[in-house]
Every structure is written in C-alpha cells, then in structure tokens.
Design a protein around this nucleic acid. Structure first.
Lengths: 325, 325
DNA sequence: CTGAAAGCGCTTACAG
DNA sequence: CTGAAAGCGCTTACAG
C-alpha cells in the first residue's frame, strides 16, 4: 500500500479511500491511484482490513449432522450451491465447516467465535446439539435451515412449509381414490419428521399405529420401512414417504414384493430432489424451494449482521405430480 | 488479551507464548494464564494473528467448472468431504469457492491472492482457464485434482491412474468373451477424457470410429451417446463408459432399445461412485480412491506451503465387478 | 523465564 | 479533498 501511495504520489489514506469506494477523492487522485494499483499489482491484505473493521466478509456454512448423512442427500448440494452463489453476489465468502463429531463441534465453535466469520448458516436436521447455545451465547449471528426445534423463538430461521406440504400430498392421494394411506416419517427429532407427520394426521385424523413407520431420511431405511409397512398393513394402497431418498428405497421394496406402482400402491415423496426423477416410476412429490431457501437464509443473515432483529421466513411447498401416484 | 494478562498478572507477551504452545513459560505462569483464559472466555482474534504471522491456516477449495456440473456428480462430494476432514485434522479451515463464470473466476482469483488463504485445492475437469496462470504467477501454493492438461510440469497434482483403469476394464470385458466393445468417452479436454480413451486403445489397438462417441460425464449425455452408439454399431456386445453417471444414462437407453444388460450388452463404468450401486443392474466399474486422493492433495498442499517443491502423486485404480458386466 | 517495544497492513476520525 | 497519526489485536526478536 505504501508502494501504491508512492507511485501515485498521494498518502496511504487516499489510497485507502479509493479502495473503499472512492468517496471524497478528486478525479485526478483517483485516476492516479487506480493506475498505481494496476501497475504494482496490489491486492489488499484482508487480515489487516478485518482487524480494523472487525468484519471478515465471510460466513460459515456449518454442516452439523452426526452421521454426515446430508452429504449423500441431494438437497444438501442445492443448499450449498445456493448459499455460495447468494453470498458471492454480496462479495461474501462461504467457509465450509463440518461439525459431525463432538470434537469437530468444539473446533467449529472456536472457529466461528474467533472473528474468522461474521455469522453462521446452520444446516442440520437433528437438534439438541450444544452448538446453538454456544454460538448464541457469544452473540454470533446465526440463521438455521428448517425449524430449529426448541429454538423457534430465539433463532432466526428459514423453512419450507412442511406441514402444509404433507397435507397437500395426502389430500391428493385421497383425491385419487386411495383409502388406506400409510406413512414413512423422518426422524421425530427433526422438523421434517414431526411436521410432515402432523400434516398427514391433519388430513387423516387418528390413524392406526400399524400405518406409520419411523424412518431416517436415507434410502436403505426407506426400503426397510416399506417392508415393515407391507407386513403390518398388507392392505394399504398408498404411502406418503417423508423424503424422496426414502421413497426410492420404498420403490425397491415394493418391486421385490411384486406390488406395482402406482397401480397397486401409490407412492408420494417429499423434496422434489434429483432423486425424484432418477428413479422409475418418477416420483410424485412435494417441492421444497431450496434455492429460494438459500437466498432467504443469506438475506436474513446479512440483516442480522447489520443489526436487525431475528426473523422467521416460511416458504410455500408445492405438489409435483409425476408417475408414482 | 490485555484482560487475560491483567487477570493472570503477567504481560501480554507471556499470554501469547502460552497461546502458542507454552514454550519458555514457567509452570505457575502457564497455569495462571490458562485459568485466566477460561475465566475471561478469551478467544484469539485470527485476523490480528494472521496479520503478523502471514499465515491464515485456511485453504481454498476452488470448484472451477463452467457448468458447475461437478455439483451433480457424486464424486465431488466425496472429494469435498475428504478434503474438509483431512484439513480439519491439521486444524485448517476449508474455504469453499465456486469459479464457474468469468466474473466468479476473477473474484476467486482476487480472494485467493489477497492473503485470505495459504493455498488452494483446484478441482476442475476442464482446463484452459486462466485461473491456474493467475495463481501460479502470484506464487500461491496450488494442488490440482487430476492431471492438469498442459500444466503437468509446473503444477503439483494428485490423480488416479485413469489410463490403467481403462485398460483393466477393457481387458476384463475381453476376458468375458466380449468382442465388439464400444466406448463413451469423457470430454476430450479433460484428463479423464483423453486418458481413459487412451487406455481403451492401448488394449484394443486401432478401433473403427463408429465404436467411439464423445460424452461429457453427465447422465443425459450418456443416454444420448448410447443411442448414437446403438445406431452406429448395432452389433456391439459391450460398452466401456467413462463415468458411472453416463453409464446410468446408457442403461436407460439400452432398456428402451430392448437390449438386456449384461446378457446382450455388457456395461463397464468408471468411478465407483454412489451411482454405481443405485442403478439396476449395479455397475461393474473402476474404483477411483477419492478419499485417498483428498488426503494426498491436502498433504501435498501443506508441503508446498511449508516450502517443499511441487510433486505428483498417482494412485492406482481397481476393477470392481458387479452385475452389469 | 519474562516484559517492553516494535511492527504486521490496513482504516478512520481529525484537522486543515 | 487530503495528510498525519492513532489504533485494530496480536507475535516476536531483544534485552534482561
């Protein structure tokens, strides 16, 4: 920076002003500095800048999933890409962190609170990690993806309307003449687990236990859950599955059992992830607007960093009809 | 830090020494400082530290793919997770950057060279972006994933032995009695494109043009390429496909054409990605050791940052026999 | 083993 | 509009 100032024949203060928008700088000074920057190939040292501004212009993307299951979930990539792009538009860098184990969570907590980032985007399905309390306690701006069970009031978050999506799907299955509709749920310590089940019950009222099996979002579990459902309720003619990945597994189990989809059993998924069209028959499912969710998370986090109070954003879900129901 | 020093009754210099390993510090002083740190909840300011050490303890993961196609590729996630974990073991943070468009590449280049990171892991299939030259010119330590066409000599990289993998697959197909073996290649401006085709030719010698179709690694293109191959060479009894994703597409095309796999046409994939077992029949394929590739990339980058000269690491590939061939 | 002091490369009131 | 100067929060020879 001294070099640039010397070459341009001005003070470092003026160089700095040019760097920060060029306000209060005369045209000739501005030109001289810009020429000097190009000539010297100068790039600001972000650490020095951050040290004085107390702002790093980067945020953490915290993947806090014990089994790191999200990595296999196509939804996750859409979210990661969406956040990276939305942030890039604001010239903010995404720092990727994985908080799978206890040890990793400690590391992440230390990292996020040590001024390395201005805030954090929390992506996890299961709750109950101490991470949230740690970060909140330090006053770090945080936005969660999905309703953070138990922290709805003190944490900003963006979520799809899971419950309404589930209602739409079950109503659709009914409208197609299905009468015995089973469900494979997500884990019941996740918002997608409880809310989608609640939506199912909203429409169907009290349902016999044998019609509901708890899953965990991944493919294999969907397959096992479907087998169980088939043995508990051989008479079912439709199943609402809380994720496309599990629905893909359910399809496999049905094929093996000799049941045709959708003729014998209709399958409704959730997410409208890439899996929905990768399987055959293609899944009728509920679309979550993940790209918009990413954009809203970023918007909310930037607002929080700017000092705004936390807020909640709920985005609508939408029925997508394909071949499985 | 002043607070900690005050509480512990020592100077800031001593606090700093404790923070940096506790060498040359007396036991009582060390204890007092650690107590004070706990009591005050102090966390170092990384920017201040980096400003003086000139080291950020973070590296960039540069995803430089025009179509951002990698995001859909399961290989990519394995790589990202592998790198994040290997880096975490060294207490180094991964900063995720996407350099898809020209504009993004400029941003990334500025970011990487401005001292924000100590080095970069370059993940891209296509070459010829100016990014490499930019970073090299600035003296930024860089390790590429896969042979960087045209930069083999001046860039450190880690790659799987693509050519030998291709040879293994073609030899296997021959050993199963297949006589007319077609190939769907990757893009010919990528190492996986040229090297896998070279391996195919190593075994088969000169091959009629009608047996080889160029693809682009993604599913849809694999489907289209298979259709083309089927019309150009209706007599083929095996196809070596340069990626599992394309092989999945090829399977769809074959099913539609009424050809049974592997009875009528055997399919050999490449990657052993999650796609290989997600499709039916499961793919016989060539395994790339992506987790080891990530670990080696990280090791190489840290060596580079420490001042070692660039190096090349080639990891073996391995035939995995399943149902498609 | 320890403290005082310089310095890392910036930004930003402040005075002019 | 511009320069001189203080200060962001650390680390690290240096002297003791």
């Amino acid at each position: 920076m001294d070099d640039v100032a010397a070459v341009a024949g001005v003070s470092r203060g003026t160089v700095s002003r040019v760097l920060n928008g060029g306000h209060n700088v005369s045209k000739p000074a501005l030109d001289a500095v810009q020429r000097a920057i190009r000539k010297t190939g100068y790039v600001v040292n972000q650490h020095a800048r951050s040290l004085v501004t107390q702002r790093s212009h980067s945020v953490a993307f915290v993947l806090s999933e014990p089994q790191e299951r999200l990595f296999e979930d196509p939804n996750f990539h859409v979210l990661l890409r969406g956040c990276t792009q939305s942030l890039a538009e604001h010239d903010i860098t995404l720092v990727m962190t994985i908080a799978g184990t206890q040890e990793e969570r400690r590391r992440v907590s230390r990292f996020v609170t040590s001024g390395h980032v201005d805030g954090a985007l929390l992506v996890s399905t299961h709750m109950g990690s101490r991470l949230i309390d740690d970060l909140r306690g330090r006053g770090v701006p945080v936005v969660a993806c999905g309703r953070p069970l138990g922290h709805e009031r003190d944490l900003a978050y963006v979520a799809a309307d899971d419950r309404d999506g589930a209602r739409q799907m079950v109503q659709y299955l009914l409208s197609k003449g299905r009468r015995t509709i089973g469900m494979i749920t997500g884990p019941l310590d996740t918002p997608g687990g409880v809310d989608r089940l609640a939506g199912y019950r909203d429409v169907l009222g009290p349902v016999p236990d044998r019609l509901v099996v708890t899953g965990d979002y991944v493919r294999d579990r969907g397959e096992a859950a479907m087998e169980r459902l088939l043995s508990q309720a051989p008479d079912l003619d439709a199943v609402f599955v809380a994720s496309d990945l599990m629905a893909a597994g359910a399809l496999t189990a049905l094929r093996r059992a000799g049941r045709r989809v959708p003729d014998d059993v209709a399958i409704g998924g959730f997410d409208d992830s890439s899996m929905a069209t990768a399987v055959s028959p293609a899944l009728t499912t509920i679309r979550q607007p993940l790209t918009r969710i990413s954009a809203e998370m970023v918007r909310l986090l930037l607002a929080l960093i700017a000092g705004d109070p936390p807020a909640t954003v709920i985005l609508p879900t939408e029925l997508v009809v394909r071949d499985s129901a």
